[in-house]
Design a protein around this nucleic acid. Structure first.
Lengths: 151, 151
DNA sequence: CTCAGTGCAAATATTTTGCACTATG
DNA sequence: CATAGTGCAAAATATTTGCACTGAG
């Protein structure tokens, strides 16, 4: 699944802020560089916890700028706080384990093709789409095989 | 878009609660019948406002039961509170206007076919999926054509 | 009669905002 | 130096929970 061909494509978040005419501040540098270190999806809270030197409001504000700039994707988690993940240039979708919440990525060209054919059926302009596949990930499957008491 | 063949398929929410062994109470009847009257997606808050005789907690608890029963789908709205819509038996997806927030439904058999082919690429068991198409709906398109001052 | 269910209000969780202060450009 | 940006804490928003009371079975 993890496509090795997907190099670090423009994962330069502070640059995305520059492009919006925002100043380069130490708080923003701290936030963006921390995000770049996290390979996984993260929550705003998590970032606040990991960056005690940066105010909560600033973390939230910086995340919002990055989302607005299209550098991060915000993915809604039905249970609680949304997660964010770096928006690599290549469009992708997410897998979410419904047990442990682990987030993965995948790409599938067919999905894009389907979008095009959907255009005809939909009343308005398509400006984007989101697709999440809910899975039970392999580790959770393994865990349930040992713990299950048989329904 | 609106498939006329999709009759009112088992839109009997109180029944869904019965099936779970939950009691028939007046509060639950009020909540479920109100939901059945709303043809659109709604928020928990909205329901509370429209049912001042029912406690907020009860509204939330009833919604949760209905979601657990599969009678309602919970759809995450990135800005704020999730919306709920009656889960008709036929699997469907949603369109969300990114300007006005209007929610629509659509079905597309190809989507299901894509899911099947995705199974091979994904690490774990697929237990569900969610797909939202973000659109600018026709009314918002019309509005922007008159109000737009050019980028 | 018993306990699931209710309603309230307080507790939680998450995000935003007001404001005085700081540091970028 | 002007003002965008910051950090704090309080406010706003969204949802859950504790608990005494009520009503369904």
């Amino acid at each position: 699944m993890a496509t090795a061909t997907t190099e670090s494509i423009s994962v330069n978040l502070i640059n995305a802020l520059d492009d919006r005419g925002l100043r380069r501040t130490s708080a923003r540098a701290a936030v963006t560089s921390r995000i770049e270190q996290i390979s996984d999806a993260f929550t705003a809270e998590q970032l606040c916890r990991e960056l005690p030197g940066v105010g909560r409001a600033t973390v939230y504000r910086t995340i919002r700028h990055l989302v607005d700039a299209g550098a991060l994707c915000k993915l809604p988690i039905l249970d609680g706080a949304p997660k964010y993940s770096i928006a690599r240039v290549e469009h992708h979708h997410h897998t979410i384990c419904s047990r442990c919440g682990a987030v993965g990525e995948f790409r599938h060209s067919t999905v894009e093709r389907v979008m095009r054919s959907l255009g005809k059926e939909i009343d308005g302009d398509i400006v984007g789409h989101r697709m999440e596949i809910f899975i039970t990930c392999n580790s959770c499957l393994a865990a349930s095989r040992s713990g299950e008491s048989g329904g």
